[in-house]
């Protein structure tokens, strides 16, 4: 839970930093560059304009309604607002591959029915928008704020029913570590490795390492099956089972390695390489030293 909050906080602060940089960063050289470019609008200008408009209207709206008592009508309006915001973001950032109505194109799949959870996972871990077509969407710094991700998720969820973003109560509280560990070894370890260090799949794809992933995203991955991952629905792994698996992964992440440095938790390959390079290397160094002392 604390990790979760920390994550949001981090996102916000990093966004703020980015804004600061952009205002402070306009010095003479950038102005010069701008002047030469006069006559052409910056490609992101329209996005920025829409964003600014949305934020101001949204902000004003929030200001006006904050004093009013919250009612069902109001939440419906807020929801509608969110969907519209998401639609705008979608049109600007996602539509080129997923289609103007998220119906899918040759470049990207249809998003009807993937649900808010899939959007929250893909965008929230930085996998979407993709930087380039490849065997698999790569993780990279998250491109949107938490609010923007929520808006995108709300828009995609409004298209067709699908898995929702899980409530945090699902993976909080007491968990059975032993059950989580056993389920992890049976269901997950064949791709993600017993220590969650990740592993290879076919055709250049891979199962990513699981250390440092937010509980929410692990849960969403299990219910949506991103990339090559299968879906683990609630009949397959009950919500309690999922919570146990997440608790086990968090235990592995937070507990210091027993017995020293883990060498990447890659098993005998890194152990063997270590022994050949450093163990045998050190010993051979000593033999050279001993032989040299004789002369």
């Amino acid at each position: 839970m604390s990790a979760q909050r920390g994550g949001i906080h981090h996102n916000r602060s990093s966004l703020k930093e980015r804004e600061d940089h952009s205002t402070m960063g306009i010095d003479s050289t950038t102005k010069d560059r701008r002047r030469t470019r006069a006559g052409r609008r910056h490609p992101l200008a329209s996005v920025a304009l829409i964003l600014a408009g949305l934020v101001t209207t949204g902000g004003a709206y929030a200001l006006f309604t904050s004093t009013a008592t919250a009612g069902t009508a109001n939440t419906a309006i807020v929801q509608q607002q969110l969907v519209e915001e998401g639609e705008a973001l979608f049109a600007a950032n996602c539509a080129s591959c997923h289609g103007a109505n998220a119906e899918g194109t040759g470049e990207g799949v249809s998003l009807h029915g993937v649900g808010a959870a899939a959007v929250d996972f893909q965008v929230g871990t930085g996998r979407m928008p993709m930087a380039a077509q490849g065997p698999q969407a790569e993780q990279k710094p998250v491109q949107f704020t938490e609010e923007q991700i929520d808006a995108l998720a709300a828009y995609v969820a409004s298209l067709a029913p699908g898995p929702e973003v899980p409530d945090e109560s699902l993976f909080e509280g007491e968990a059975d570590l032993a059950n989580g560990g056993e389920l992890f070894r049976i269901n997950c370890a064949m791709c993600h490795n017993v220590a969650g260090a990740g592993g290879a799949l076919t055709e250049g794809k891979w199962a990513p390492a699981l250390m440092g992933v937010e509980p929410k995203h692990i849960y969403e991955a299990m219910i949506t099956g991103p990339q090559n991952m299968p879906v683990f629905n609630d009949l397959n792994l009950s919500p309690e089972d999922k919570a146990d698996i997440i608790a086990y992964l968090k235990y592995m992440e937070e507990t210091p390695n027993v017995g020293g440095f883990g060498l990447g938790s890659l098993g005998p390959v890194s152990e063997g390489l270590f022994m050949w390079i450093f163990g045998l290397g050190a010993v051979v160094g000593v033999t050279v030293w001993i032989a040299a002392r004789a002369n």
Partner: peptide, 30 residues
């Protein structure tokens, strides 16, 4: 080396069960 570097953390691997095979399963180097 044994004091500072972990080797064969069997508690990560868990007890043998014929169904799971972990990614990155290798024998010792030799």
């Amino acid at each position: 080396i044994a004091s500072f570097f972990q080797i064969n953390p069997i508690w990560n691997y868990g007890p043998y069960d014929p169904s799971p095979v972990s990614a990155g399963t290798q024998p010792d180097w030799y």
